[in-house]
Design a protein around this nucleic acid. Structure first.
Lengths: 362, 362
DNA sequence: ATGAAAGCGCTAACAA
DNA sequence: TTGTTAGCGCTTTCAT
C-alpha cells in the first residue's frame, strides 16, 4: 500500500487532544462552544485546531447525535423550471441554516417514487420534502400516497404543490382552482365567450384547474362544459399542429395549464394568420422563462415560488428545532398572481363578483 | 418524554441477532451477502429482518467504512436549464449505482463557492462534482481555483464545462471554441460579412467562444476584431433594447453565447421590421427550451449534455470502484451539434476548409 | 473547569 | 460456518 503523501492524514479528536494537552472531552466542548471551558484552555485548543485544520468526522457525529442535518428532497425531475426553481430556493435557504440536501429525481412511476423514498429514508435524513403534484396522486385511491404516510412515521414530511392527508405531513400549495377561476373570469369579462381549456394531465392539480375553468364559465352563465376541455401533450410543436388538425369548435380564448401548451397555441395563431390577442387570447401557467421568449410575450400565472419555498422551509425548521415551538399547519395556501403580458387584452380589472374564494397567505 | 407509539422504535443489529438467535456478525454477513453463511441460517435471519423491517444505520456503516456513498454536487444555481439538466442526468445515473447526491447551490461569488466546497467536504463525500464554467475562474490567476485543487487532495474532483488543472481533477468539457468557430464559418459562408458577437461573460468558457468567433473571421479573411464583440446582460428585454439604443455598426449576422441574448436579438429585429433570417441571421448557444419558444425558432448549439454527464459519471465510478482499473483522463472533450432552425439560412453545409480542429469523443 | 469512560451501530479481523 | 471483540470518532454523563 503506497500511501499518498499529499493526502491529508485523517486527524481526529484524539490528535487534537494530545497536541493541546487536554482530554477529548475538552476538545469536544470547544468545538461545540460549550460554556464550561476556561478562556485559556479554549484558546489553546482552538490554536491547535486551526493549525491542524481539524474537521470533526460527520459520520461519528451523526452516529452519536442521530442526525447529520440533512434534508431529503424528491422531485420527479429537476430538469424542469418549476422543480429546479423550487430546489434552488429550498437548498439556499436550508444551507444558510446549516442543513444539506440530498436530491433524488424519482421520475413519475409509482414504483420508482416509492423506492427512492425508501432510499432517502435509509440515509437517516431529518425530513423529507416532495416537490410536485405528481406525489399527490390522482386522488383515485389512498394507496397512491400510502408510502408517503409511511415515511411520515419516521420523519416529518413536507410537500410542495400536492396536498396529502396524514399525520406529520405538511403541505404548501398554490390555489390552482382560484387561479384558473380568476383568469377565466377576466378573459370572459374582456369579451371572450368561446373558450377552450387545454391541459396535459389528469393529476389532482390539473383537475383543480379544470374545476376553476368550469366554475368560472358557470358563474358567468356561459354554456361551457367538458366538451371545451382538451387533453394534449405539453409540447409546443404538438399543440401547434393539434389546433390545426382537429375538428375543434370555434374559439377566441384559450386557457392552458402549462406555458408550453399556451405557446403552442400562440404559434398556431401565427401560422393561421390569427392575431394575438386580437383574434385569440391566450394564457399560460407557471410563468416559465419561455413565456418571456414567446412573441407576443405570454400572459401567465405565477405561483410565487419564493413564498411557497419560504413557508415550506420555515415549517421544516420549526419541526426540527428542538424547542418544538409548534407544528406547522397541515396545509398552507400561497396566493398566485396573474402576470398580464401581451397575449391577452384583459383591460382594467373589473370586479363583477370576484373570485369564488379568497386566497390567504401566512 | 411522551414517546410516540406510532414511531418506529429504532431497531439495530443486536435486536435482529437476538431474535434470530445468532451473533451480530452473522447478521452483518447476511446483510452484506457474505458467502460464508449457511443457507439455513441465512433464511432464518432474513425472515426476522423482513418481519422487523430492519434497515442498517447508515451513520454507523459510514463511520466504519468511511463512506456513505455520497457524491457532492456544486452548481452556481440549479434554477438554470443547463445546470438542472446536468444535475438531473447525473443524479439518475448515480442513483442507479447506489450513490446519492448532496446538492449545493453556491452562487457565483468566490467566497461562497469556497465555503460551500468546504461544507460539502466536511460531510465526507466520496467525490465532488463542479458543474459550470464559473468554477474554472477567468484564467487570471491560479488562486481562483486553488480551493478546488485543495479539495482534490481529499476526494476525486470532477468538473463539467470548466477545465481545471490539477492532480486528481477530471474535467469534461465541450469544445466551445470549435463550436463557435464552426457556426461563425457557416454564417459567413451563407453570405454574412457584417457580424456581431455578443456574450454576457468574461469567463474562461466565454473567452474560448470569443476566440472561436475571431479565429473564424480571420480564417475567412474578414476584417473583424474586438470592435465586433459586445458584452451585454443575458436578458431578452435588455438585449432587445440594447441593440436599438447603441450606436452599433451595421450587422446582418449575430452570434450569441446564450440563447437568451439571441432571442433578445430576434425580438429587436421584430421591433425594427427586420426579417429573420432574411435581414438578420441569429444563433444562440445551449439549445435551451426557450429556443423552441422563440419565433422563428432559434438556431443553437447543443452540447450533448447526456454524453457529457455519462462520461463524467463513468469517470466518477471508475475512480470509486476499488478495482482502481485506471484513472480517467484529465480532460475529455465532448462534441457539440449545431441545431439549425429558423433564425439562420445556412443552406447545405459547405466544406471550405473545415473547422480548425476536430472534436473527439471517447 | 477538566477528565475518564460509556455508549452510538456497524464491519472485519481473528478465534473457535 | 459462526461467534467474539476491537475499533471507527464523537458526544455526554458522571466524577473529580
Amino acid at each position: 500500500m503506497d500511501k499518498n503523501p499529499d493526502k491529508h492524514e485523517p486527524v481526529n479528536i484524539y490528535d487534537i487532544a494530545r497536541l493541546a494537552g487536554v482530554s477529548i472531552a475538552t476538545v469536544s466542548r470547544v468545538m461545540n462552544n460549550s460554556s464550561k471551558v476556561s478562556e485559556k484552555t479554549r484558546r489553546k485548543v482552538e490554536k491547535i485546531i486551526r493549525e491542524i485544520d481539524y474537521t470533526p468526522n460527520a459520520f461519528a457525529q451523526g452516529l452519536g447525535l442521530n442526525t447529520m442535518h440533512t434534508i431529503g428532497i424528491l422531485v420527479p425531475t429537476v430538469a424542469d423550471a418549476y422543480m429546479s426553481t423550487a430546489v434552488d430556493y429550498v437548498e439556499r435557504y436550508l444551507s444558510r441554516e446549516n442543513y444539506h440536501c440530498i436530491l433524488s429525481c424519482s421520475g413519475f412511476s409509482f414504483e420508482e417514487k416509492k423506492l427512492q423514498t425508501e432510499m432517502l429514508l435509509s440515509k437517516h435524513i431529518d425530513a423529507l420534502l416532495f416537490i410536485g403534484s405528481t406525489y399527490a396522486g390522482r386522488g383515485e385511491s389512498p394507496l397512491e400516497t400510502e408510502y408517503i404516510r409511511e415515511a411520515a412515521r419516521k420523519v416529518p414530511v413536507f410537500t410542495i404543490n400536492g396536498s396529502i392527508q396524514g399525520d406529520n405531513i405538511y403541505s404548501t400549495v398554490s390555489d390552482d382552482r382560484s387561479a384558473v377561476y380568476d383568469i377565466t373570469c377576466r378573459m370572459i369579462d374582456s369579451g371572450r365567450r368561446d373558450l377552450l381549456f387545454m391541459t396535459d394531465s389528469r393529476s389532482y392539480s390539473a383537475n383543480k384547474k379544470k374545476k376553476g375553468f368550469l366554475d368560472a364559465a358557470a358563474a358567468r352563465g356561459l354554456p361551457i362544459g367538458e366538451d371545451r376541455v382538451f387533453y394534449v401533450e405539453n409540447d409546443i410543436a404538438a399543440v401547434r399542429e393539434y389546433l390545426k388538425r382537429e375538428d375543434l369548435p370555434y374559439f377566441n380564448g384559450l386557457i392552458a395549464t402549462e406555458d408550453g401548451i399556451a405557446i403552442g397555441a400562440v404559434k398556431y395563431a401565427l401560422d393561421m394568420g390569427r392575431s394575438v390577442p386580437g383574434d385569440l387570447s391566450v394564457t399560460g401557467y407557471n410563468n416559465y422563462p419561455i413565456s418571456l421568449a414567446c412573441e407576443p410575450e405570454l400572459t401567465s400565472i405565477d405561483c410565487h415560488m419564493d413564498q411557497i419555498c419560504t413557508v415550506t422551509v420555515q415549517g421544516i425548521l420549526a419541526c426540527l428545532q428542538q424547542n418544538r415551538a409548534q407544528k406547522p399547519p397541515h396545509e398552507r395556501v400561497i396566493p398566485y398572481s396573474i402576470i398580464e403580458r401581451k397575449t391577452t387584452d384583459f383591460g382594467p380589472k373589473v370586479s363583477r363578483e370576484g373570485p369564488a374564494e379568497r386566497t390567504l397567505w401566512l
